[in-house]
Amino acid sequence: MTQSPTLSRRPASSGSPLPRKKRQRGTDARAGYTFLLPWLLGFIALTVGPMISSLYLSFTNYNLFEPPKWIGLDNYTTLFQDERFLQSVGVTVGYVVFGTPLKLAAALAVAMLLNSKRRGQGFYRSAFYAPSLIGASVSIAIVWKAMFGDSGPVDQGLSFFGINLGGWVGNPSMTMPMFILLTVWQFGAPMVIFLAGLKQIPGELYEAASMDGAGPVRKFFNITWPMLSPVIFFNLLMETIHAFQIFASAYIISNGEGGPAGSTLFYTLYLYLRGFSDFRMGYASAMAWLLVIVVGIITLIFFRTSKSWVHYSGDSK
């Protein structure tokens, strides 16, 4: 039987990239390390040191100017009495829990809409990707504030349907929905990856299902979802990690303050403020490592549970 050329056939169903079936007999350490050399060099020279350094600093009091002072677990214990920290956790979790699935759902829906043999696909693809081209600059903050301000297009659009919320920008309970829409708006990358996955699903499957009288809903759940699950898994993992680390847009839209009323005080924004505005780099490092642990656990859980819902085409052999 031939291999199915499916994207992310096995992003690591067992938490490792090792294919179950060994492609070569034995191991090939020399070739392996030779090819891995660039990454290994970069990892050792530029990444490991700074990572360990930040881990060490998380146990110290370090103000950037004077040598760090060892204080053991103090930073970690202080975190849980810090109201702003707890607020930033709440904000970020809300964003991850609501923003990520919505963004992925939007990306998937649009990808499915574009997955047909019609004219203008290149145009639509470019149009939908365009927002993702724009970097996080002050221009984006100005544009976004205009869109969601009093009597901006969103306000007017909602008023048309009889919903009068006023401007979202200045309303602490509406800034989170605004941020979620901002991330959904920049759905280009996952959309493109979904589209690629969809294109790989053999058309024969749908033809066969049509002959059996399956409707679009059944086709989606019986064919699209399982065939696409490796791609969904990949996007879910990447977008979740990114969502936990949202920084640039948060920094720019709230002018680095996390306002109004702390409603956009995202985790990494608070971490940044602690490290570079308050000069408490030890504290910031503790925040960073706490995030590594939490997101690391979530990543592990993702990999573990993926076995039950992610279907790799090559697994059957």
Binding site: F43, T47, P50, M51, S53, S54, L57, I241, Q245, F247, T268, L271, Y272, G275, F276, M281, A284, S285, M287, A288, W289, L291, V292, V295, G296, T299
Partner: peptide
């Protein structure tokens, strides 16, 4: 390496 917020490095 994807998990660590870059500000601390």
């Amino acid at each position: 390496t994807l998990l660590l917020p870059f500000h601390v490095v």
